[in-house]
C-alpha cells in the first residue's frame, strides 16, 4: 500500500518560502491567495498484509526517529 505523509512547519514558525511564493502569486494576479505555507510530502510503500496497528506504529516510529523534527514540524498521514 502507498503511504503519504505530509510534513509541515508548525503554525507559529516563520515559513519564508511560503511568503515568497505568495508574493509571486500576488504579482501574477492571484491576489486572493494569502497565508501560503510550503511543506513536504513523503511517499512510501508498505506491504499490504501489514495490520492497521502495526502500520500506524511503524509510521509513527519512522516519523519520530527521522522523518520529522518535532521541535519545528508536525505531520499527518494521508489516506
Amino acid at each position: 500500500m502507498r503511504i503519504k505523509i505530509l510534513v509541515r512547519l508548525k503554525g507559529q514558525i516563520l515559513e519564508p518560502q511560503g511568503k515568497v511564493i505568495e508574493h509571486s502569486l500576488n504579482s501574477l494576479g492571484f491576489t486572493e491567495f494569502s497565508n501560503i505555507r510550503q511543506g513536504k510530502l513523503i511517499e512510501l510503500d508498505l506491504p499490504d498484509n501489514i495490520s492497521k496497528e502495526e502500520k500506524a506504529q511503524k509510521i509513527d516510529s519512522a516519523c519520530k526517529k527521522l522523518l520529522v523534527n518535532d521541535i519545528i514540524e508536525e505531520y499527518e498521514v494521508l489516506g
Binding site: 512547519l9 519564508p16 523534527n69 521541535i71
Partner: peptide, 17 residues
C-alpha cells in the same frame, strides 16, 4: 548537534531566505 538532541532547539531557514 540539534538533530542528535545534544543541543536544544533547531536551525531553520534564514529569515530573508
Amino acid at each position: 548537534l540539534t538533530e542528535i538532541g545534544l543541543l536544544e532547539g533547531a536551525l531553520i531557514r534564514n529569515k530573508k531566505l
